[in-house]
Design a protein around this nucleic acid. Structure first.
Lengths: 216, 216
DNA sequence: TGATAATTTGACCGGTTGGTAAAACATTAC
DNA sequence: GTAATGTTTTACCAACCGGTCAAATTATCA
């Protein structure tokens, strides 16, 4: 048989899993740094340490690689937001959401950049996911936040823009890492910058959403 | 003479200024959406409405176009931060900085995306500018913020991460525009989203940096 | 073992890429 | 006008792109 893997129904060999893993790992590297159009199969093959036709044996097109990556990463990328708990203490929930998002920016920067590239360039491959599952999840969590505000547990605010603010401030440390490190200078560019960022952002959001004495 | 414009010392004709303008305008469109490597000269030529060799008569390489764009845009991009005034009222200064950055995200999204693409992809063409002029400017303004905190005018906080937070939250509306609009849904995707964002961000930063009664 | 299926590779293809050469065309200066 | 200069285009090139093919190699298993 010469049918490439994608045409088969079931995963067979151990070697297939390994190679696909190896390819996606390399593809993540390349797509995250150059975007879809700026990346080449040869580059990915190089990083993966295999020949181009060999890559195309496991993924029939460049798009198939990209899609496989997106599918695999999108889900886990939204996990922190899913954990947002309506029953929890608002301040605790928001703080731990920020912390988790910052940890992901620190530990999985390539995944963040993969999405950033995609969205920056108009989300040509994932607009359905944005309009569908992502919007649905955000709508749900926005309702939670609105309820907290209504119950007087946090200040009244636009929940959507609150979520955008948390996304942007945290992902900034992955997507704009070069700039962050250049501006902080070498002596402050160690891993400690994530701790500093966490401290600052928690202060900002907690105080920013606090209920004033006698106010709303 | 067949020397392209770049080789000459002085600008001569009116037509040169016009064409260069036209090319950079088109290049901004293309580079902002696809990044440097993902953009092609043919594409830019198409958008500019001229032939590829004609483009290359004014800019000898694709890189020359990109560099010309970066140089032209970087300066104006930093203007809002330069206006940050040590003598002004901290709350006013920060609010108007946020508002100006949001206006730029609304009115010049392509410029924002041009930089975002560049930095996302490791800033291969502008790292010197980041480490030099940008860092210097941020260092200076960070000192201003630190002084405000020391004087008890705003809460103590890491000034660098404050600046990052303002950058990321405001530029988010240009760089991640597709996502913002997809999540907000069609009915909330009008220009009003910038007003909503401004209101939210001012509240967040003003309250977040407020001095508590009796606290720091 | 050997037969069979799975994997890998080198050679290749048509289309696109950044860029060039030279001649045609337009503009300006006298 | 016309000569010199400035601008634009057509035709082209070598390198690279995504992807195919068939043959070679390796793993699996009776």
């Amino acid at each position: 048989m010469v049918l490439p893997r994608a045409a088969r129904t079931q995963r067979r060999t151990r070697i297939q899993e390994e190679k696909e893993e190896q390819i996606l790992e390399a593809a993540l590297d390349v797509f995250a740094t150059h975007g879809f159009r700026g990346s080449t199969i040869d580059q990915i093959a190089d990083v993966a340490g295999m020949s181009k036709p060999n890559l195309l044996y496991y993924f029939r097109t460049k798009e198939a690689m990209h899609r496989a990556l997106i599918d695999r990463v999108l889900d886990s990328w939204l996990d922190p937001l899913r954990e947002f708990d309506a029953e929890g203490n608002p301040v605790t929930e928001i703080c731990s959401y920020i912390r988790r998002k910052l940890e992901m920016a620190r530990d999985f920067p390539r995944e963040s950049r993969l999405f950033a590239n995609e969205i920056l360039q108009g989300a040509p491959h994932i607009e359905d996911e944005l309009k569908g599952p992502l919007k649905a999840l955000v709508d749900e969590k926005a309702e939670v936040i609105r309820a907290w505000a209504k119950a007087g547990k946090i200040a009244k605010c636009d929940p959507y823009h609150l979520i955008f603010a948390i996304w942007s401030t945290t992902q900034h440390y992955a997507d704009f890492d070069v700039q962050v490190r250049d501006v902080l200078g070498e002596e402050r560019s160690g891993e400690g910058r994530f701790e500093d960022a966490a401290r600052f952002l928690e202060q900002l959001f907690v105080k920013g959403l606090e209920i004033k004495n006698g106010g709303d």
